[in-house]
Simulated assay, not measured.
Amino acid sequence: MIVVRLDRILADRKMKLSELASEIDITVANLSNLKTGKAKAIRFSTLDAICKALECQPADIIEYTDNES
């Protein structure tokens, strides 16, 4: 299972979702869907923009967990 940890990174950076959305030019609704795990996909360009804005790596945002454990 893929888990999005965007909320954790935002909290670490003391940044609001709306601030990030504005900085990377994406709607708050789309970013919220990603944050809550409702998104089915993410574009590499969006991931790139998020990582640049938050000064992090993709692995800081997206995590794989084994459903069976």
Rank of each mutant, 00 (worst) to 15 (best):
46 T>W: 01
54 L>H: 02
4 V>S: 05
23 E>T: 14
55 E>A: 08
38 K>A: 04
66 D>A: 06
60 D>Y: 07
10 L>S: 12
18 S>L: 11
58 P>K: 08
4 V>R: 02
40 K>V: 04
27 T>K: 07
20 L>Q: 12
49 A>V: 03
51 C>L: 06
69 S>H: 08
43 R>T: 04
33 N>C: 07
44 F>Q: 05
7 D>G: 09
50 I>M: 12
53 A>K: 03
62 I>A: 08
1 M>Y: 07
15 M>Q: 15
18 S>Y: 07
5 R>W: 05
58 P>C: 10
37 G>V: 02
69 S>Q: 11
64 Y>N: 04
51 C>S: 05
3 V>W: 06
38 K>T: 02
30 N>R: 14
12 D>S: 15
19 E>Y: 08
33 N>L: 09
27 T>I: 13
33 N>R: 08
31 L>M: 06
14 K>R: 15
61 I>Y: 06
4 V>N: 04
11 A>T: 15
17 L>W: 02
12 D>T: 13
39 A>V: 02
11 A>D: 14
5 R>K: 14
15 M>G: 13
14 K>D: 14
28 V>H: 04
17 L>M: 12
65 T>Y: 05
34 L>I: 08
9 I>W: 02
14 K>F: 13
63 E>K: 09
55 E>M: 05
58 P>G: 09
30 N>M: 14
35 K>A: 10
4 V>I: 14
17 L>R: 11
13 R>F: 10
7 D>K: 11
26 I>D: 11
49 A>E: 03
11 A>V: 14
4 V>P: 00
31 L>Y: 01
25 D>V: 15
28 V>T: 10
27 T>H: 06
50 I>L: 10
45 S>M: 01
44 F>D: 05
48 D>V: 00
69 S>W: 07
23 E>R: 15
54 L>I: 09
65 T>V: 11
49 A>N: 01
61 I>D: 07
14 K>P: 08
64 Y>D: 03
16 K>H: 13
16 K>I: 11
45 S>E: 02
27 T>G: 11
25 D>H: 10
16 K>R: 14
36 T>M: 03
39 A>H: 00
12 D>I: 14
23 E>D: 15
52 K>W: 00
64 Y>F: 09
5 R>N: 13
36 T>S: 06
23 E>A: 15
29 A>K: 13
48 D>K: 04
48 D>R: 04
41 A>M: 01
61 I>T: 10
68 E>T: 11
7 D>Y: 03
39 A>L: 01
38 K>R: 04
42 I>E: 03
53 A>F: 01
55 E>I: 05
25 D>R: 12
28 V>N: 03
22 S>F: 15
7 D>T: 10
48 D>L: 02
27 T>F: 03
33 N>Q: 09
7 D>Q: 11
17 L>V: 12
26 I>L: 15
64 Y>E: 06
3 V>A: 12
63 E>F: 10
35 K>E: 07
25 D>T: 15
